[in-house]
Amino acid sequence: MAANAPAARAAKPAGQDVTDASELASDILRKTTSLLISGPRPHAAEQLDLYDGIFARLMPQVAAERLAEFSTALAGLERAPYATARQLAAHGDIRVAAPMLAKAAVLTERDLTDIIKTAGQSHLIAIAIRKQLAEPLSDLLIGRSVPAVRMALVKNLTARFSEDTYRSLFKSAERDDELAEKLGSRTDLPAKLSRAFVAVASETARARFIKAAPLAAQATLQATPTRSASAGMRASWDYSHIKAEVAALNRSGKLRDAAVNRFVHSGDFPAAIFSLAVLSDVAVEVIEALMDDDRRAELLVACKASRLSWATASMILRGRPGCAPVPPDELDEERIRFEKLVLSEAQWKIRFGIKAN
């Protein structure tokens, strides 16, 4: 009986060796991490490579819970071992990957791009909340078409969006009230896209967007007509009082810049619209449609095709009934575009390339 005692003491439950090895690896990982964080900071790439080698041996032996703690500890380092950071960021367990994806400065745009192309929703959201997220990464995230990722991006006030990304977000927000509200709270929204959104969004989305917007922008947005309101205004325009006068001016060669300028200055916008239609040789419905807030560029093409000066074209642009005021900086941009337009190209485009919608 006594002879069997050592054997009995030596017997271990199944899997005990694996558990002991995991605990030992976890302990070494914790101590090595502490040395990396608290000890002399490694500067040379060779030193970081040494840590990479150690971590590469230890990580496969450590449970996900410990790896998550390890990832959190390394994510805040300005210079973390690169191969280790990449391995943690690509880990299938979001608890392990999230700290790296959300914070690690060592990860390159290329690293994040590769992950965005194949990762699931949780990993994408972790990237979407990164500070100072660059435009190309935002574009890629939006391209994955995941609603929760869109929302995370919009809430990240440090993320940078291209105009195309903003267009996509506004399109999604037309019928998504919560997304519309979060968009409205951003201070970097392009003003012209905001006004275009307010014109077409559902009533609830429009209201929540305007309420969340900065106070300085709320009055302008509130004054922006909806698409249905603009259509109703066009339907009420009457040209019967002006047709004969415009026809007479045209026959005598006096339907020119000065005449259109006079119509706009006197507030007779139907006369100005009808004159533009005659001068550019298109149906009046085409010019009417260009009075919408989001068709300024095409309206300027019609003005150029009608041989109007910038002074008259800008009066038309600023005087459109029911449209929000054009900010001075945007008006300067429109002037530059107008002056670059070529008469022959504008005449061709208004006659064959622009339609009434």
Rank of each mutant, 00 (worst) to 15 (best):
S26F: 10
R227E: 07
M59V: 15
A21V: 14
L308H: 11
A14M: 08
R186Q: 12
P328N: 04
I94L: 05
F263V: 07
S266E: 12
L74H: 12
N261I: 13
G267W: 08
E65Y: 10
G143K: 00
G322L: 07
S344N: 13
Q222T: 10
D281P: 04
G253D: 06
F263A: 06
A7E: 14
L137T: 09
W237M: 08
H265W: 09
I115F: 13
A259R: 11
S280P: 05
I210F: 04
Q132S: 13
D188V: 05
Q16L: 14
E135T: 00
C323P: 01
T224G: 09
K103E: 13
D294F: 15
S280H: 08
S230F: 03
R251W: 04
L137I: 02
V282P: 04
D268A: 08
Y82L: 01
I354E: 07
A98H: 08
A219E: 09
R130G: 09
S314F: 08
M233C: 02
E65G: 10
F170V: 06
V264C: 02
A223E: 07
I127F: 09
R320P: 07
L141E: 06
A277G: 03
D17H: 14
T158D: 08
V278H: 00
D49A: 08
S344A: 15
A201E: 04
R110V: 15
I127E: 11
L331A: 15
R262W: 10
A148F: 02
T108F: 08
L341V: 07
A21S: 12
I115C: 13
L279Y: 05
H123V: 10
G319V: 06
L88P: 13
E330M: 14
K103L: 14
K340S: 13
A97D: 09
A14R: 12
K117W: 06
L107D: 15
Y51F: 10
R307F: 03
A356L: 11
E174D: 10
I354V: 02
R144E: 14
L141I: 04
P13H: 12
A5D: 07
V246H: 12
G253H: 06
P42G: 14
F263S: 04
K340M: 11
K182R: 05
L141S: 06
P136C: 05
V154C: 02
D257C: 01
R30C: 12
N357Q: 15
R195L: 09
S228E: 11
F209G: 00
A229Y: 08
A75S: 02
P190D: 04
L77I: 06
V301M: 12
W310P: 08
A90F: 03
H265V: 07
I336Q: 13
G184Y: 04
D281L: 06
L107W: 14
D20I: 13
Q347G: 15
A85V: 15
L343P: 13
L308Y: 07
G322P: 12
A98W: 02
A219D: 06
A25M: 05
K355F: 12
Y239I: 03
N261E: 15
S309T: 11
Q16K: 14
P225R: 15
